[in-house]
Design a protein around this nucleic acid. Sequence first.
DNA 1: ATAATACGTCAGTTATGTTGACACAGTCAC
DNA 2: GTGACTGTGTCAACATAACTGACGTATTAT
Lengths: 170, 170
Amino acid sequence: MTDIKTMVNPLFLREEELRRGIELLFYAYRDFTAEPDAMLSRLGLGRAHHRVIYFVGRHPEITVTELLRILRITKQSLSRVLGDLVRKGYIVQRQGTRDRRQRLLELTERGRELERQLSENQRRRIARAYREAGAEAVEGFRTVLLGIMDPENRQLLLSAPPERTARAAR
Amino acid sequence: MTDIKTMVNPLFLREEELRRGIELLFYAYRDFTAEPDAMLSRLGLGRAHHRVIYFVGRHPEITVTELLRILRITKQSLSRVLGDLVRKGYIVQRQGTRDRRQRLLELTERGRELERQLSENQRRRIARAYREAGAEAVEGFRTVLLGIMDPENRQLLLSAPPERTARAAR
DNA sequence: ATAATACGTCAGTTATGTTGACACAGTCAC
DNA sequence: GTGACTGTGTCAACATAACTGACGTATTAT
């Protein structure tokens, strides 16, 4: 019988490697969201508001349905958060012209300013990480994260320019 | 005056690049947690339970304080979740020998089985992404995620073997 | 002996999500 | 044009996972 202690076990190494990946994602995400969360709570807002502000800023004229598809929450959940943001003057809605049932969402100047402040820390983090890691590592980072996503969502991020991305999801 | 339309703006490209990073993290995390969440809800558990099960499995004999430091939640929040898991027989606590105030946490056989099931999908995702991306990309992925984390948390993941990691955090 | 730590618990609150039901306006297919 | 479907909003009730603040007990450290 082989001595189990001295045996190199590729399955174990593989498992350890995958677990490190799981943890890395957890810790990075935890630290990535901590600062914006703290800023938001001072304004009486939460992470959910940040997500809406972010994606409306990213996809101007996005519709409610498109936003729901990105966030993967119910319209009732979105409604509360979106209502807060409209009431506080961060977002405006106007009727769609192509389809008048749609409400096209856009940041106000005030909304853009908040978005800038909230994402600044996150952009700084990523910028620092990219700079320290180098271009090749950045490419690997992107490739692996895309690989972790559901396959059907990948194209949207790869090809389409950001303003059209959400729309193309239909 | 320079024609703004034909000018290549490195600041804009940089911003676009960073935003892609932010989104990639959001989408990957969203898809990464979706399946375990669905499994958990069938058992009357939530993502918070998964995190506890995961880290207790990862760091056997972890103490409550150490777990709190990883999760970054209050002990009152942890208490409810941990209580559920103990009551349902997924986790056992015993008194520490070195310090009898401590409660050392460990998965039961049942807990290990649940952990395995929950993380299976996540490990498969990461394994697939790693395989498709290649070793170099994996290295880049890890480097960038470490760079995104708060600097003071990096060592813990780099050097220490997993069972000691949490303990060393003190 | 006193202070600090590890853990637990009670009570109340907030943020963010869920289901289900219903309404209305506008678009599409026939 | 009528009927079906779609986009949006809203009401109500509920679940989960976090929070703050206060207090208690056992144990360890100074």
